[in-house]
Design a protein around this nucleic acid. Structure first.
Lengths: 184, 184
DNA sequence: AGGCGCATGTAACACGTTACATGATTAC
DNA sequence: GTAATCATGTAACGTGTTACATGCGCCT
């Protein structure tokens, strides 16, 4: 039982899902490819933590809809209070930022610009999802609501994307002022 | 040449360092253990991108002080404008947050509390380093300064830690209100 | 005609962590 | 005495990515 396995169980507490859906939906929390998820689901099934029903489809491949079992739920509940590892972040841009003075301000700006586009897209997407959730729940979901987890995570995603954009804008301002000077 | 290799070259543009120092100093940008770094440094040396001098020490093991070569610098400069991969984040806490309603608000609060301690510590550390840098540079380092990369990264670390703390505080408030209700 | 989305799975490889190995000094 | 810091390195293992494999329907 590695962390991703617990992540899959966690996702399945929301609703039953296919491996394909799990792969897509877990991305914002834990990056993983389908080639890692399918074998893990098979293991979880053998261990009795999840079960699946096969749904035949016309025009599309058959799919397996997984749901969490009582045993899986118990396993998950025991995991939650355990010591939580520190988050792991690896960002190529930060390595480039460290030695950014090796390039010119113009190149530096285009590096940051691509990052702005990335986070602007995410910000819009997560804001939309957060609004949708508030509409459905008619306000802010409380701890008891099954959407509570989703709610606090969406809120986090929004403020996180905003913070990234703020930093990018701040750096861009510094670089623009610099370009002004080097023009002289 | 994987990303960590470029990261090591980037670090060495600041000043020559030992493998041990590189291992420590690259952590905030790219998590890696010494067992990964030492073999990579050996490869970089064979490829001619870095060189080292051995310094004998009494009372401590001998050390190799690495510095970047002209070839290494050229290689690094060619890498910077290349397409930058998206950042990878993996955080166990977010997986737990998704299914946090499976536990009680009290357990949830202690999960968040540990994270608050982690980021409060980092915030203090990075604020201090940022102040030190501003003192040394007598103000904000400009693009030309060799500290510019360090400066924008420290600024980012500070605002990032602050954003994490803000979210933790916000979640804690939600949970405290919840505890109030469940008491009734 | 070619690419994307759905849907699953395996095999080979690259990357990262843990453990093994050594050894002196300093601090609690 | 027992752990931590400095300092390097290798071996085994676990995790994550890329590539291989299949196949239909939809869109451009």
């Amino acid at each position: 039982m590695n962390t991703l396995s617990y992540g899959l169980l966690a996702m399945l507490t929301g609703s039953p899902r296919t491996g394909y859906e799990l792969m897509q939906q877990i991305q914002p929390l834990w990056r993983a490819k389908h080639s890692q998820i399918y074998p893990l689901l098979a293991k979880l099934e053998k261990a009795g933590y999840v079960r699946f029903v096969t749904v035949e489809q016309k025009d599309k491949p058959d799919k397996k809809i997984y749901s969490i079992t009582e045993q899986g739920l118990a396993k998950l509940c025991r995991w939650i209070p355990e010591k939580t590892d520190e988050p792991v972040k690896r960002d190529e841009l930060l390595l480039k930022a460290y030695c950014v003075s090796l390039t010119d301000p113009h190149t530096a700006r285009s590096l940051i610009q691509r990052r702005i586009e990335l986070y602007a897209g995410r910000l819009g997407k997560y804001k939309q999802l957060l609004d949708d959730l508030k509409q459905e729940e008619a306000g802010e979901p409380g701890f008891g609501s099954p959407s509570f987890g989703n709610y606090i995570l969406l809120q986090r995603a929004v403020s996180n994307a905003q913070a990234e954009l703020d930093w990018c804008d701040w750096v861009t301002d510094l670089l623009i002022r610099q370009e002004g000077f080097t023009m002289l």
